[in-house]
C-alpha cells in the first residue's frame, strides 16, 4: 500500500469511500427525520437518544472526519486537476450533451451543500447536540425537542420560515445532483463497476438520490405546512397511553381507553 494514498487513484478512493460513508449517513439521517412525520414525540425521543451520549459523540466525530476528508480531498484534487489542465483554456468547448451536468460541477455543488450544511448546523446541531454538550441554557427549546425546533424554523417564523424552506429545497436540489453523480461514481472509482453495471448504477443512483432528497424535501414541506403537531403534550415516559380515568363524562368505574369528549390525549412517545 506504500504510496497508495499519494497516487491519483488512491486519492479518488478516499473521495469514494468517504462519499459512500456520507451516503450511508444521509440514509440514516432521513430515516431518523421521517419519524417526525409520524410522531413528533417519538422524534424527540430519538433526539434524546442521539444526544450527548458517548456513542453519539463518537459517531459525530467519525462523521465529521468523513466530511472533512471528503472536502479537503475535493479541494486537493481540484487544485491538481486545474494544474493538469494547463494554463491555456479552450476558446470554446462544447462537450457532448451526454456529459452529466453534475459530473462537471461536483465542487460547486459540494460548496452549495457545505453552505447548506453550515446553516443546518447553526439551526439544529448547535442548538441541540452542541447545546447539550456545552450545557447551554436559555434557548427557546431544549436540546431534545427536535420536533419543536423543526416547527419553529419552518413554520413559526413567518417570512423567515418561507425563506428557510426555499433555501432547504435548493440545498436538496444541489444534494440531488451531487448524489446522482457521486453515487455511481463512488462505485466506479473503487472498481465495482463494468459496462453492464455502469447503466445500472446510474439508475440506482437516480432512484437513491431521489428518495433521499424527496424524503428530506417532504419533511421540510410537511413542517412548513404546519403539519407537525407540537401542541399535544407527550405522554410521560414508561406510562401506557391508556387513560385510567375520565376526567369528565360517564364511563362508570371502568377505565376508558378513549379520550373523553373535548379532551386531547398525550402523544405516544414510542414503545
Amino acid at each position: 500500500m506504500k504510496g497508495f494514498f499519494k497516487s491519483s487513484i488512491g486519492k479518488k478512493v478516499i473521495m469514494s469511500v468517504s462519499g459512500l460513508f456520507l451516503i450511508l449517513f444521509l440514509l440514516f439521517h432521513l430515516c431518523m427525520n421521517l419519524v417526525v412525520v409520524f410522531s413528533p414525540c417519538a422524534y424527540n425521543e430519538v433526539c434524546a437518544f442521539l444526544g450527548s451520549n458517548w456513542y453519539a459523540v463518537a459517531g459525530t466525530m467519525v462523521l465529521a472526519a468523513g466530511f472533512l476528508l471528503h472536502i479537503i480531498y475535493a479541494f486537493v484534487l481540484t487544485v491538481q486537476n486545474r494544474k493538469a489542465r494547463g494554463k491555456d483554456r479552450y476558446d470554446s468547448q462544447n462537450l457532448p450533451k451526454d456529459v452529466e451536468f453534475a459530473s462537471k460541477n461536483m465542487l460547486v455543488l459540494g460548496i452549495i451543500i457545505a453552505c447548506g450544511l453550515l446553516t443546518h448546523f447553526g439551526q439544529f446541531w448547535a442548538k441541540m447536540m452542541f447545546a447539550e454538550l456545552a450545557g447551554c441554557e436559555g434557548l427557546q427549546f431544549g436540546p431534545t425537542q427536535g420536533a419543536q425546533w423543526i416547527n419553529y424554523y419552518f413554520h413559526d417564523c413567518g417570512g423567515l420560515s418561507i425563506a428557510l424552506t426555499i433555501v432547504y429545497l435548493v440545498w436538496f436540489a444541489a444534494l440531488w445532483l451531487h448524489l446522482n453523480h457521486g453515487f455511481w461514481s463512488a462505485f466506479h472509482t473503487v472498481g465495482l463497476s463494468n459496462s453492464l453495471w455502469i447503466p445500472r448504477l446510474k439508475c440506482i443512483a437516480k432512484w437513491f438520490s431521489t428518495i433521499i432528497c424527496a424524503g428530506f424535501a417532504f419533511i421540510v414541506i410537511w413542517a412548513a405546512a404546519g403539519a407537525i403537531d407540537t401542541k399535544t403534550p407527550c405522554c410521560p415516559k414508561g406510562k401506557p397511553e391508556v387513560h385510567n380515568q375520565c376526567q369528565s363524562g360517564h364511563h362508570g368505574d371502568k377505565p376508558c381507553d378513549k379520550p373523553c369528549q373535548g379532551e386531547k390525549p398525550c402523544q405516544n412517545q414510542g414503545k
Binding site: 479518488k12 493538469a84 462537450l95 457532448p96 462537471k104 461514481s185 466506479h188 472509482t189 472498481g191
Partner: peptide, 26 residues
C-alpha cells in the same frame, strides 16, 4: 489530472473506448 468520472473522454474518443476500462484499471 485525476479522473472524476465525467465520461467526456468516452464520448469524444474516436474509437469509443469505454470508461468501464477505467473501472477495471481502478
Amino acid at each position: 489530472g485525476n479522473c472524476t468520472n465525467t465520461g467526456a473522454c468516452e464520448l469524444e474518443c474516436p474509437k469509443s473506448v469505454s470508461i468501464s476500462h477505467i473501472a477495471r484499471l481502478n
